[in-house]
Computed example of a mutant assay.
Amino acid sequence: MISLSVVEDRLSLIDLLLLADDDRVSVENYLQLGTLYAIECHEKVIGAVLLIHHTDAITEIKNIALHQEQQGKGIGSQVIDEIVNIARKTGSKILEVGTANSSIGNLTFYQKCGFRMVDIKRDYFAHYKPTVVENGIVGLDLVLFQMDLRHEDKESS
């Protein structure tokens, strides 16, 4: 069973956040925004998630990362369920997340969790150092997903 706990010492989780976002400058720029949570399993930190609650009833998953050995075990879906609960409690109507066009696993994962593609932000990652390359694809564009929280149950495939 996983749990999310608020973290005050944000720098303590920066290495985890860098698993999901390779550009340290970008991570440092948004690290102080929103609420940072440690993802815990059996009292051990196995990941991190940074949520930003926007005034327009949107909660953004700015960064979400699990240690590689924790991936593919269904933990990510449990974390999304917890995030949905948090977002609903804050009055959010939309949950939003973005990922690189090259992140094939993430593109699949978010859709399985009930997110829908809503936009593409061209060249969003063009300034990243080092250049984002995954699955033999250069990551240049941000694919933006949203989940409508006004429905009681998230859709799944």
Rank of each mutant, 00 (worst) to 15 (best):
K129S: 06
P130E: 11
V6N: 05
R10S: 02
L33V: 11
V49E: 01
I94M: 14
D22L: 14
Q71L: 13
I52Q: 04
E43Q: 14
V45M: 04
D9S: 03
T131R: 08
I104M: 11
K89N: 12
D81H: 10
L95E: 07
L142K: 12
S157Q: 09
A48H: 04
S26P: 08
V6F: 05
L51I: 08
G34K: 03
A38R: 03
I80V: 13
V79G: 07
I137M: 02
V79M: 13
N29R: 15
V143W: 05
R88F: 12
G139F: 01
G136R: 06
N135F: 08
A87T: 14
Q78W: 06
G105H: 07
D141F: 05
V79D: 00
D23M: 10
K44I: 11
V45C: 03
V118C: 13
S156R: 14
I86T: 13
E155L: 07
S103K: 10
S26R: 09
E134T: 04
L149K: 00
L50I: 08
E40C: 02
S5Y: 01
Y30P: 00
E134L: 05
S103L: 05
D141Y: 02
E69A: 15
N106H: 15
P130W: 05
A126Q: 09
T90H: 13
L17F: 01
I14G: 03
Y37D: 00
S102E: 10
V25P: 07
I94H: 06
D21C: 04
S92P: 02
I80C: 00
L149W: 04
I14W: 10
K154G: 03
E60C: 06
C41I: 10
V79F: 11
Q111E: 13
R88S: 12
E40F: 00
I137D: 09
K89F: 09
K129W: 08
S12G: 08
R24W: 06
I104G: 03
K89G: 08
D21Q: 10
L31H: 03
I120F: 12
V6M: 02
I64T: 07
F145R: 01
D9K: 00
T108A: 08
A87W: 00
E82Q: 15
Q68W: 12
L51W: 06
G136I: 05
F109L: 13
